[in-house]
Design a protein around this nucleic acid. Structure first.
Lengths: 336, 336
DNA sequence: AAACGTTGCACAAACGTTTGTTCAAAAATA
DNA sequence: TATTTTTGAACAAACGTTTGTGCAACGTTT
């Protein structure tokens, strides 16, 4: 049982491969193929379970209907969620996702990107780990559109869609302040990531807007549970314990949570907590955690939309979007 | 700036494309290409940032170095985790993953599979939603190896790798029984999925081995939080409340958790809880939940290993593996 | 009946690779 | 010097598509 191709159908039906191709692509009338012929060919195609070779087509058309997606770690609820949305939206638009995990490393990322280029993807969506947009911009200029998601670069022509991290952090911090907190510590993630920087900035602005600059404290260095745990351990062992923590991710918050519990502290009675990222489980902790939710669905949808538009007409002004987050109130903040 | 191909390099260096190809594939000495020539070509290739077209190569070689992965829902911690491992392992073996989400639907699954076949993937890893292995077996016979993961079929030649769900459930149930529980209700997931069936079987066997058949109660119908929530609500409203719940997934457990809390019940004092699936967050609930952990890493590693082996020599006896789970003790079970 | 428009399809090139075969020139041997 | 061997590389086909063009046969008009 040989693979059935357009050529094999041509042989068994006696028509030429161009005719087969045209029929199977619905261009029968455009090329005046007779209804009889169409029927014969379609019948044969379905009899043989013909499935067109997208790679042959890709080679000929110089278009693979394939989109590359590079995330720092699929095994992270946030990115898994993003990937989920993107896979769905891409499919709706007739595209297929090639998934890469850069493992939070810059070299990992460039490897992924090189591989994607070799696969001749039509465009790519990247959550960058690196600090420079240069090589991605070059790729974009070479006609492989790139869209950044979540993390992005300050000065770049590349389109991106992310959350308005600044205002999200500002709101969260102000929420704490309004509840009487002054000594609020910020547990940050990877300091070079734009989201981190903007969240930290929002946190600082909120403090200074309320004359609390002197309490500003920023600790930590990555988005891991361990980081949240370790930093909180240190904080709680020190002389002047903060009254509230602002964790820049849900993973960091989890670590803080554990450290607080181990110290015998009750949230929110002894320590208040707010974090970034929404996640189902946060509602089931005791107490549920007040958090800044990112509009993941919208982010994914827009990322694909922008990418598709860039793929159509390359001259377009690139969209750089920051979507508004939502503060979800729960019970982890105490009114002092 | 035109795309650089093997042909463009041939033109600028003056050599033929076959020579370029051989040099760039490290077959220089095999074909006695002179060191000088090699150097010239390699220099030019790197100057132009040459990246071979994997789709052209795929067409010629009839091998794309691409593996399809179909999961019911990427946005599910368990499958995200599986995907993560598989992406990593595939990459290590020189393969790239094309990710598909079947959305827990049989038609969604066949669509995904059709698409993958059109993309001419070299093999695929599937977490099947359907009830029949037939069409997948046919694909496997047609020389596109298929490996099942997590869910599988009772009677099939297809290789699979999953958890020994029966013994995991048996152990979990017995754990409850040893703690004095008799009235243990099983909150099941999708009843047609093999894991569900085997877990239920393990649960029943444990009960009957301890002469508790009469307490056997199985409710629910899918792996959602809502299912766990709804069923637990009903249970807790009934006259004879169970003393313990056995949730067949962590999502179901979450729903049960919420319902219990809403009913003002304390776990484990008023109600004991054990569930399937490990997940970071389970340790942070109050109390942490005792659970049956699946060896996800091993599952992913083995799935790729088996797939690669099938791709090499098709005659191989297919491996059907059930890996042992681990009961992780926490604090959600009360000693009666 | 001659000229012409239509209908229905076939031919062939191209996309970027890999690889079996061929072949001239250089080197080695006789 | 004449012959054989070795060296270094080119030629060409093939993978499965799409698409611009060509061209018979048929039908219509004058």
């Amino acid at each position: 049982m040989d693979k059935t191709t357009i050529t094999s159908i041509a042989q068994t039906t006696g028509f030429s491969i161009s005719t087969i191709s045209r029929v199977l692509n619905g261009k029968a009338e455009k090329y005046r193929i007779s209804p009889k012929t169409v029927e014969i060919i379609e019948k044969e195609a379905s009899r043989c379970n013909y499935s067109p070779s997208l790679i042959a087509r890709g080679l000929r058309m110089n278009k693979t209907h394939t989109i590359g997606l590079v995330v720092p770690s699929i095994d992270n609820p946030f990115f898994a969620n993003v990937a989920s949305v993107i896979v769905r939206e891409a499919k709706n638009a007739g595209y297929t996702i090639v998934l890469m995990d850069s493992a939070e490393s810059e070299t990992g990322e460039t490897e992924c990107v090189r591989s994607l280029l070799s696969h001749r993807i039509d465009g790519m969506i990247v959550v960058p780990c690196g600090v420079s947009p240069d090589y991605l911009e070059k790729i974009d200029q070479d006609n492989i559109p790139v869209v950044l998601v979540d993390r992005y670069f300050e000065r770049t022509r590349l389109p991106y869609v992310s959350t308005d991290n600044f205002s999200g952090a500002y709101e969260a911090t102000e929420h704490l302040i309004r509840h009487g907190h002054k000594h609020i510590v910020c547990l940050q993630g990877n300091p070079v990531a734009t989201p981190t920087k903007n969240r930290v900035a929002g946190y600082l602005k909120a403090l200074s807007d309320h004359g609390l600059e002197q309490f500003a404290t920023i600790v930590g260095n990555d988005f891991s549970v361990q980081n949240g745990y370790g930093e909180t351990k240190l904080l709680l062992a020190s002389d002047n314990r903060p009254s509230a923590l602002f964790a820049l991710s849900n993973t960091i918050a989890l670590g803080a949570y554990k450290a607080a519990r181990e110290a015998g502290l009750t949230i929110p009675d002894d320590l208040s907590l707010v974090c970034f990222d929404n996640y189902m489980y946060l509602d089931y902790l005791e107490p549920p955690v007040t958090r800044v939710a990112q509009p993941i669905d919208e982010i994914g949808v827009l990322a694909i939309k922008i990418l598709l538009r860039s793929m159509e007409k390359r001259d377009e002004r690139s969209s750089q979007l920051l979507l508004p987050p939502t503060l979800l109130l729960a019970k982890s903040v105490r009114q002092l």
